[in-house]
């Protein structure tokens, strides 16, 4: 498929080391790999935020510590919401494989409901923390906490916006090739956010309360 054009006969002409016959790529053939690489770069953002939290997580500035602030029961419910949404997104993908538009749309709605429940609980937690004076300005620990968990929450928010947009697209155009591709990307994005949340509840909440 790839042939290097190299003129070996004539010594005076410099050899050419590049692909001369560029073969056609079908549209979207490289999307999944490209999106995976985007996710990996997103992973690096979270890695840096985790590192910041790891460094500053113990700097309370005589303020509240994780033990005083975190309600693990609430975090467990939140974790369950995100995990269930991952499962229902899986169901949506299975319906997509069966080319069942109605089933896909239904499971996407269920996923969005779980996603919104997650966001609602997280916003309630943030509002409660800010209300009792544990604002991002209070200590380096709280700055790092709000940045890390807030960035994850922002990702979930945009995931839901994306999901709603795609839902409308699929209602209009059905499971066309482009929509299938978009849905596969969103599925990767959604499962990826759940992977990040494993790190958040382990390192931030559970380890924080342990400290």
């Amino acid at each position: 498929m790839t042939t290097l054009a190299r003129d070996a006969n004539t010594g005076d002409e410099a050899p050419v080391f590049y692909v001369k016959d560029e073969h056609a790529h079908p549209e979207g053939s490289s999307t999944m790999l490209g999106f995976w690489i985007y996710l990996m770069s997103d992973c690096l953002i979270f890695a840096v935020l985790f590192a910041i939290y790891g460094v500053l997580g113990g700097s309370y500035a005589a303020g509240p510590a994780p033990k005083d602030l975190f309600d693990l029961g609430l975090v467990a419910v939140n974790t369950a919401m995100l995990l269930l949404s991952s499962l229902t997104f899986g169901f949506a993908m299975l319906e997509m494989m069966k080319s069942n538009v109605r089933g896909t749309l239904f499971w996407l709605v269920v996923t969005a409901v779980f996603g919104l429940a997650f966001l609602g609980i997280e916003l309630y937690e943030f509002a409660h923390l800010i209300h009792i004076g544990a604002t991002p300005q209070r200590s380096a620990f709280l700055s790092a906490f709000f940045t890390l968990v807030g960035t994850h929450g922002l990702h979930v928010t945009f995931g839901i916006v994306w999901l709603a947009t795609l839902w409308v697209q699929m209602r209009r155009h059905g499971l066309i090739e482009a929509n299938r591709r978009r849905l596969m990307c969103l599925s990767m994005f959604w499962h990826f956010l759940d992977v990040i949340w494993i790190g958040v509840f382990t390192f931030v909440y559970l380890m924080g309360v342990l400290r």
Binding site: S86, L87, I198, L210
Partner: peptide, 15 residues
């Protein structure tokens, strides 16, 4: 999903 529930529940229970 079943594995994830188990792997999530045990750490929460431990802490």
């Amino acid at each position: 999903f079943a594995l994830s529930v188990f792997l999530t529940a045990v750490p929460f229970w431990l802490v």
